[in-house]
Design a binder for these strands. Sequence first.
DNA 1: TAAGTGTGTGAGTGCACACTTACAAACAAA
DNA 2: TTTGTTTGTAAGTGTGCACTCACACACTTA
Lengths: 180, 180
Amino acid sequence: MRSTAEARRVTVLNTAVSVFARAGFHATPVTAVAAAAGISEAYVFRLFSGKLGLFVAAAGACFDRIAEAIEAGAERAGGDSPEEVLDAMGGAYAELIADRDLLLFQVQAQAVTDIPEVAEAVRAGYRRVATFVQSRARASDAQVQQFFAYGQLCHLIVTAGLEQVPEPWARALTAGIRHP
Amino acid sequence: MRSTAEARRVTVLNTAVSVFARAGFHATPVTAVAAAAGISEAYVFRLFSGKLGLFVAAAGACFDRIAEAIEAGAERAGGDSPEEVLDAMGGAYAELIADRDLLLFQVQAQAVTDIPEVAEAVRAGYRRVATFVQSRARASDAQVQQFFAYGQLCHLIVTAGLEQVPEPWARALTAGIRHP
DNA sequence: TAAGTGTGTGAGTGCACACTTACAAACAAA
DNA sequence: TTTGTTTGTAAGTGTGCACTCACACACTTA
């Protein structure tokens, strides 16, 4: 079955986000992404400039999807107050990351920020999301900061599997977090 | 009977925390840890049960140091209110991670929680720290949650290098965070 | 139909790295 | 001195993986 290279890139990128999310950049062979996408490893290398190019492009796709979800969520806000808009954005984000792939990919990307290209991709992603949150919700710096702080807390909860821990300390950390 | 091997393990573990912090579990060869510790790779494998055993033990050492710092910080609190004690703990933590190694190691550990032994080590670390914070500060669940949410925000700030970004969105995220 | 262009792969190549083994030197009882 | 234990290493071994290259097939256009 044939398709255009551009269409292939899109499907490979979405596959790559899911596959890299599980074990991260260094532990994921390109063959794993290729197999999941249903094409040969060699063609992945033709479509992207090396494994790093693939990962950086996947990071772009990941943050694109997050930004779109938050932007769509803002449209569904019940009112115009910063609190209402932030709440709608938070809800949209919680819904988006229900399948964990986008969240885990972010964690994996943050872990390889010693590679400058990855660090820049992460900054670009947060730049897009944070500027939108700040301007659209007309929220204060403190509110924006809190929004992202609790977003990062979600990363810990999911990676450490704290939802499954019944002990009081874990219940405190997960209290009120909208569920995956 | 105290052997030299036990002393070696301690120095190797502290070295391992620093070395793994830079590039993470999968991207760090055991030879790098051995070289930094000044011993042969073969001896590292004799002291620890494989690379994974080394990493898990290093995670234990990492969280030990964090817990000790926070416990010591609590002793220096200006008063007995939850806010004052939490503030002292936060200050002690901020001071501890000034050199970034302990913070980055936590990020790396969170990224390889698909390995069950690592996930358990991370949970054990947060169990120790969170239960202490909750009981020692007599803080509410919401206060404990906020304490860790802003701690996780520090991870993002440092990994993405947001202190170096002069744009408004980055200033909002880093505002008031103690010198990372 | 022939040539050109874009899509796709099988079969390598070379190297990095986790882990092992065989061996050696220091030290301690016997 | 001999025997045993502990600390330490040099030199492998096997494997997995990033990346390449020669080649083939599909589709278009002259």
